[in-house]
């Protein structure tokens, strides 16, 4: 498949992973086998990492607490920050870890059921790690938009039902 169409295929699946190979094939004007083959290639190359569902847990009635934790780390020869980042991201409570520019070195996003739980994680697991010099925790109060998804009521279709 041409790179242009491969990109379009990825965009379609990124928007809705449940789009069937048949649908993708007709949208791109290629045959189904080609679509299936490309998807397999992308999966084994690790371009497609996995298929997820975007869930609004608040709406389901389950509370989840998120916090951004900026971490100051003293770098080590040869590994820089990688080893510390790795020790952090292995905890399942850790949602994301980034190396960032600015005052701090790592930005960690941690989730838990309660603020207490998150606070305990920071105090007992993160802060005591070797070479972690300081942590600054900010709790998320409200999530407006995440990964391109807006968490507000969807706007109604305001168009007239028929127009020339």
């Amino acid at each position: 498949m041409e790179p242009e169409k491969q990109k379009a295929l990825l965009e379609i699946l990124e928007q809705d992973a449940r789009t069937t190979p048949e649908q993708v094939a007709s949208m791109l004007g290629v045959d189904i086998e080609q679509v299936q083959r490309t998807i397999q290639q992308m999966e084994s190359a690790g371009v497609i990492r996995r298929y997820k569902t975007v869930i609004d847990w608040d709406r389901f009635g389950e509370e989840r607490v998120f916090a951004f934790i900026d971490v100051k780390v003293s770098p080590a020869r040869e590994v820089g920050f990688d080893d510390v980042a790795e020790r952090i991201y292995r905890f399942p409570q850790v949602h994301a870890v980034y190396l960032v520019s600015g005052d701090h070195d790592l930005r960690v996003i941690v989730s838990g059921r309660t603020m207490k739980e998150v606070a305990a994680f920071v105090a007992e697991r993160l802060a005591p790690l070797d070479r972690v010099q300081a942590t600054y925790t900010q709790f998320v109060l409200k999530r407006y938009k995440e990964d391109g998804e807006v968490y507000a009521e969807t706007e109604p279709d305001r168009r007239l039902v028929m127009a020339p």
Partner: peptide, 28 residues
């Protein structure tokens, strides 16, 4: 008078009606 008026009035009242009759983008 406009030929779609009659259908418009019905379509506007039916619940669960899917309209492929709109001549404008669905994007805002």
């Amino acid at each position: 008078p406009s030929g779609i008026r009659r259908f418009f009035d019905v379509a506007a009242q039916l619940e669960d009606c899917i309209s492929l009759g709109v001549g404008e983008p669905d994007f805002v």
